[in-house]
Design a binder for these strands. Structure first.
Lengths: 243, 243
DNA sequence: CCACTCTGAATTGTATGAAATATACCGTAC
DNA sequence: GTACGGTATATTTCATACAATTCAGAGTGG
């Protein structure tokens, strides 16, 4: 089965081994990963020639990848002027959090009603998070594991569109988290939050799963906004244009 | 302000006059319009060379447009095998309706809380629909006008992400409607539905706007599913591969 | 009669060069 | 000193040539 062109989540991008057969796909995967992890910083100008050299491909497949990313809202693309990594604005983060509040809680409710026993088992495996404060490596593992849990939960809604919406949101929301932004992360608390939602799913209590999810997302949003507010002024949100 | 690369709704595609400066944008607009209106039928194979001749451009910008459409889920793209207009499946329609139920009702609630007086005026202008049964031309006008109202309502949520999600859904849901599918359309009933939602928005009653929206969407979904069920077997959903 | 391989045509994937456009810089006039 | 205009450069955009892959069908052997 050939690899179809669809958005790939950060999780998938990281799991994936062999180079996809089409160079466009590889360029898309590499760039998306770099953008979501802020290795390519928000606001950074992107030059075709440089990226080609870096990835080791020619301009045609690179441009096709950039077009996909443009449609996805990860790079801004102005004809005849060039590309830049889409800046992260406060307003956009607020919008994403509000949308997440709406769709992820409803996804949790559907998941509670529709998840198969196998899916519940898999959720249980992913629920536990570990994190050693101060260690960058485990921090990134934490972020990935947390996303993986929420993605699988969305998948359990058995609604592909709903899942895609949630996955896209989670991906985009990774960027502020990778910006050095240390909100007081607590692996045990996060694990506990996963556990109570999971319990509601096990009991097929959609109402409760949705309510818990809403509480947790409001919580997460407030922590993020607080951290951002304290960082305001420091040019985290939008780098100037250094290479 | 240069035209940025972002998804364009069917409404915009139709309103737009002058050819966009970038050929990629033009190809994207033309193809998307043809796909959403089912002038390019679901399942139809797409050949680069033919499309180039038809649009009058070369393969490079065309391929960039096809990549965007692939990411958007409007064409399926398998490396070295080609493109085809994404088929419309029952499951996908169900998923989209469910997601619409979730996001559009919440968008209506936010719109009730946040719409400006000017926006309410504009909504009022768009609320009324006209439709002469049996006339294809007015049928398509009806579809566009109805989408325009729902899009503006989503816009009034003042949440760009939420709006984008709704717009994308409305666009994708145009396809089954253009497939000849005549659900018992009633312009007066639809106008009445718009009016009651609009009244809730005027009164800033978010709860009520959301509830009305949910009722109307469930209604619309049932009408659509019924019409589809009666058409089942006739190859509406997925054309064979005639040009 | 079936299965298999090989060959050719059709189609997509990739690279590269030429044209179009925007931006920055410098000089000049006021 | 400032504003304006022109030129040079950098960058994107587009078209085309070439390479890689798939698919269909003929031919061959079992």
């Amino acid at each position: 089965m050939g690899s179809i062109s669809r958005p790939q989540s950060l999780i998938e991008l990281h799991t994936e081994q062999g180079p996809p057969l089409a160079l466009t796909d590889r360029a898309y995967a590499v760039l998306k990963h770099h953008i979501l992890t802020c290795e390519l910083r928000p606001g950074q100008r992107l030059i075709e020639k440089d990226l080609c050299a870096e990835i080791g491909i020619s301009r045609t497949p690179l441009r096709e990848a950039l077009n996909r990313l443009g449609l996805e809202g990860l790079v801004s693309l102005v004809p005849y002027r060039g590309y830049e990594v889409m800046p992260v604005t406060m307003q956009d983060i607020r919008d994403m959090c509000e949308l997440r509040y709406i769709v992820e809680s409803e996804a949790a409710a559907r998941a509670a009603e529709r998840a198969t026993p196998e899916e519940v088992d898999r959720l249980t495996e992913l629920a536990e998070l570990r994190y050693t404060p101060g260690d960058r490596k485990t921090y990134e593992n934490y972020l990935r594991a947390n996303s993986a849990f929420h993605q699988l939960l969305a998948h359990c809604s058995h609604n592909a569109r709903l899942e895609a919406t949630v996955v896209s949101l989670l991906d985009h929301l990774q960027r502020p988290l990778y910006l050095g932004l240390d909100l007081g992360l607590d692996a045990e608390a996060a694990t506990a939050e996963h556990m109570v939602v999971l319990e509601a799913v096990r009991n097929k209590d959609g109402e409760r799963a949705a309510r818990l999810m809403r509480e947790q997302i409001v919580d997460a949003e407030q922590r993020m906004m607080a951290a951002l507010a304290s960082e305001a002024g420091t040019s985290l949100m939008q780098s100037s244009n250094q290479k």
